[in-house]
Amino acid sequence: MPATSRPLRSVLYIPGSKPRALDKARGLPADAIIFDLEDAVIPDEKTAARDTLADALATGGYGARMKIVRINGLDTAWGADDARAAAAMGADAVLLPKVNSPDDLDALADITGDTPLWAMMETPRGMLNAAAIAAHPLLSGMVMGTNDLAKDLQTRFRADRQPLMAGLGLCVLAGKAHGAALIDGVYNAFKDEDGLRAECEQGRDMGFDGKTLIHPAQLDIANAAFSPSADEIDLARRQIAAFDAAEATGQGVAVVDGKIVENLHVATARETLAKSEAIDAMQAE
């Protein structure tokens, strides 16, 4: 489970400048929402977007969804004011774009105080500094910015994302080492359900907690991909039961479906059941 103990299977970007989109998000089955003041808002609307978003969050209605505000970079004309506004909105975290080092998070924390911070990991320098970024005391989540990373790396598109694997892998290692939530990058072809499903499965296999999404049509696929399946839940329960029975007879291992079950497998099984229960609890709210 991620450090937040919340399901983060689907993390949907919503423009902070669009009242209709902000209202619609209240009824969408997203585990988390990134309220975007950066890329999704044109320059002429950036200042007004702060007030629009503040009003929406003050109105509430987002339930158990995690609320994350992505600000503009602190090197822009809007970043510092965004940060001050975001800290006052009661969001669960502030997301900083293009984090290159812990110094960037320090600069943000000077404005936002003890508000939890998330980092956009989308530059080669950021990937090389992933461990130091994940170790920041206020850092609780890392979001992969795969489009910007691909641009900086000058790669060509590949369905297997092989050119991005080195950077993504560094972030997964860093996030797991320091207990940060890990959210995979967006899938641009929002009408390509098979492609999205494959990329979600790849991300889950790598260890990501969920995926950032650009369209509500992507929610169901991401939620399914990052949820324990019925077979996984059944196996987890049988592994725990078999191991408990083996321990009761003085044995340190059990066998389930012809495979050895040890302490580490039981720990994973318990995490699977805990994640399933957390998802059920969130959906019941």
Rank of each mutant, 00 (worst) to 15 (best):
P2C: 01
A3D: 09
T4C: 06
T4F: 05
T4R: 11
Y13Q: 03
G16Y: 00
G16T: 01
K18D: 15
R20Y: 06
L22T: 14
D23V: 13
G27A: 13
A32I: 08
A32K: 02
A32T: 04
A32P: 01
I34G: 01
I34H: 01
F35R: 01
D36K: 07
L37W: 09
D39H: 15
A40K: 08
I42E: 14
D44P: 07
D44N: 11
E45F: 07
R50V: 03
D51H: 11
D51L: 10
D51F: 07
A58I: 06
T59Q: 13
T59D: 00
G60Y: 05
G61P: 00
Y62C: 05
K67C: 11
I68D: 00
R70D: 02
A77Y: 08
A80R: 15
A80C: 15
A83Y: 01
R84F: 06
A85D: 00
A86I: 12
A87T: 04
A88P: 00
M89Y: 06
A93P: 06
L96H: 05
K98P: 04
K98M: 12
N100G: 15
P102L: 12
D103K: 09
L105F: 04
D106W: 10
L108N: 03
L108I: 12
A109T: 08
D110W: 10
D110P: 07
I111V: 14
D114S: 08
P116T: 02
W118C: 10
M121A: 07
E122M: 07
T123C: 10
R125F: 13
R125N: 06
G126A: 03
M127K: 03
L128K: 11
A130M: 08
A131S: 14
I133V: 09
A135H: 07
L138W: 03
L138D: 13
S140T: 15
G141A: 09
G141Q: 06
T146G: 06
N147K: 09
N147D: 14
L149A: 02
A150N: 03
D152P: 00
L153P: 05
T155W: 04
D160A: 03
R161T: 11
Q162C: 12
P163R: 01
L164T: 10
L164N: 02
M165H: 08
G167P: 05
L168M: 15
L168T: 07
L170A: 10
L170T: 11
C171A: 12
A177V: 09
A181K: 06
A181L: 04
L182V: 12
L182D: 06
F190H: 08
K191S: 12
D192E: 08
R197F: 04
A198R: 05
C200A: 08
E201F: 00
Q202R: 15
Q202Y: 10
M206W: 04
G207V: 14
L213K: 05
I214T: 09
H215I: 13
P216W: 00
P216M: 03
Q218I: 12
L219I: 12
N223S: 13
A225I: 05
F226H: 02
F226D: 04
P228R: 03
A230H: 04
A230L: 08
D231E: 15
D231W: 06
R238N: 10
A245H: 14
Q251R: 15
G252A: 13
E262K: 11
H265P: 00
A269P: 06
T272Y: 12
E277F: 03
A278K: 00
